[in-house]
């Protein structure tokens, strides 16, 4: 008898989120309306956060929901709203370009899928999957320590040569922080309204 507890819930949820992710990714591709594309993209990235939860990367999944779905996509939706002139809401692509793109895209997909399925180590399920509990993959504290420069998850590594490559991520973290600050200031500077220049142009015409 198949009980609820005996079912492979990881597989069931994986297929659910995988279908949602792929389906909405293809919906983004095949939708001509830019407002609908933005909405499908929100659902696609939300479903892929579900996949991150399933791999045990809860912190990354939470960041995906907060930064990507909550921040980046809101920015994109603002862009859509600011440029949503009725002429540009659905720009059609010529069907000749579609055919070429679909041929090249299916060739690329076939290549990637065959590469993913050919490595024996990747198609083999983890033999001691049942022995790993949710507490074993809990990673929020090690991630925080890693960003502060200490890799508490690799303390058992004794080989000094390998240990050199396992230092923390303090410097990349600082670089990416400064980078984000500079980028956001630059973006705000570039996107500011230039009313005076536009008025001069119109006056000249």
């Amino acid at each position: 008898m198949m009980t609820l507890a005996g079912m492979d819930w990881h597989a069931i949820y994986f297929w659910l989120f995988a279908l949602l992710t792929c389906g909405f990714a293809l919906a983004v591709l095949f939708s001509a309306n830019v407002v609908r594309m933005a909405f499908y993209l929100v659902l696609c990235l939300g479903a892929s956060a579900g996949l991150f939860f399933l791999t045990g990367a809860e912190f990354v999944a939470a960041m995906q929901l907060m930064i990507y779905v909550g921040g980046t996509l809101v920015l994109l939706v603002f862009g859509v709203m600011l440029t949503a002139h009725s002429r540009f809401v659905s720009l059609r692509t010529p069907s000749g370009e579609w055919i070429l793109a679909l041929i090249a895209g299916s060739a690329l997909l076939a290549l990637l899928l065959s590469a993913a399925l050919k490595v024996p180590d990747w198609v083999k399920a983890n033999p001691d999957r049942a022995a790993i509990s949710a507490a074993d993959v809990e990673a929020t504290t090690p991630i925080g320590m890693g960003f502060a420069g200490v890799r508490v998850d690799k303390l058992s590594q004794t080989d000094p040569q390998l240990l050199g490559g396992m230092s923390g991520y303090l410097l990349p973290f600082l670089i990416v922080s400064i980078h984000l600050l500079v980028v956001l200031i630059g973006a705000a500077y570039m996107a500011r309204a230039k009313r005076r220049a536009a008025a001069v142009d119109e006056g000249a015409v």
Binding site: L26, V123, A125
Partner: peptide, 15 residues
């Protein structure tokens, strides 16, 4: 397995 996730990633990448 990992290959299942790679397949989802490949579909997203190509899209």
């Amino acid at each position: 397995t990992v290959a299942h996730y790679l397949a989802v990633g490949a579909v997203m990448f190509v899209a």
